[in-house]
């Protein structure tokens, strides 16, 4: 299990932001559009420049390029590669990493089974529904066994029923794999459901989330 520490992060939209996630912890960050939620995840993934320090298990990873950070990044758009089948999408991350003797195809099958996407293996992403695409993207994200999972509103484009199904499946999956998870969302219900701890991002700074009395699923969604 991996802990994550952000120290005095500065970039265009974030100011002196610090945060610590204990190993195996799941934290949700709430914030409106434009508050810098996605920016925060992208800079942890090494996709954007920043000042400050990002540490995993106490070791700074700031100088590591994105492909060496061993993170899983899942966004609303999934970005499944349209020229590859779901199985090949999931296989791609394994091409350049050791699989401890386990055949790559077997590892792909295991990841697809984990996200209940085995039946989608032969399809191209263009043929899948939103929920199916998200299952496939999650399998691709998990197949390498990432040290940390970054979720950028991954379920927000789905209908309520599919979203709730995926939330519960995801919680079971996260607990089984014990992955440290950082989720950003604008949906308080999603944040409360998926996060063991909820924080609020406001004007580039993090604050503890205060649940407004009377906020229900209907209000939140």
């Amino acid at each position: 299990m991996t802990s994550l520490t952000l120290r005095a992060i500065h970039c265009r939209t974030l100011h002196d932001l610090s945060l610590t996630l204990a190993a195996g912890e799941s934290v949700a960050i709430l914030g409106p559009s434009g508050s810098g939620k996605s920016t925060l995840l992208k800079l942890i993934a090494g996709l954007l420049p920043y000042r400050g320090q990002v540490c995993m298990n106490g070791v700074a990873i700031d100088r590591l390029p994105p492909h060496r950070r061993q993170l899983g990044y899942l966004s609303q758009e999934q970005h499944l590669f349209p020229h590859l089948s779901v199985a090949h999408n999931v296989l791609l991350p394994l091409l350049f990493c050791a699989t401890d003797g386990e055949p790559r195809r077997q590892r792909v099958a295991r990841a697809l089974a984990l996200t209940q996407a085995s039946h989608l293996a032969a399809y191209r992403p263009g043929r899948l529904s939103g929920g199916e695409r998200q299952r496939a993207a999650l399998a691709r994200c998990l197949v390498r066994g990432p040290r940390l999972l970054l979720l950028d509103e991954p379920f927000s484009a789905l209908d309520l029923q599919t979203r709730q199904t995926l939330w519960h499946e995801f919680i079971a999956l996260r607990e089984a794999a014990a992955i440290t998870t950082l989720l950003v969302t604008h949906d308080p219900l999603e944040a409360r459901t998926l996060g063991q701890r909820v924080l609020q991002l406001h004007h580039g700074r993090l604050y503890p989330y205060v649940d407004r009395p009377g906020t229900t699923a209907a209000h939140a969604i």
């Binding site: 090494g46 996709l47 758009e77 590669f81 791609l92 991350p93």
Partner: peptide
């Protein structure tokens, strides 16, 4: 979309690959 390349990097593929 350049985000496909960014996604590929986070999946462990170097920019050349």
């Amino acid at each position: 979309d350049p985000d496909y390349a960014a996604m590929s990097w986070t999946l462990g593929l170097a920019p050349g690959w």
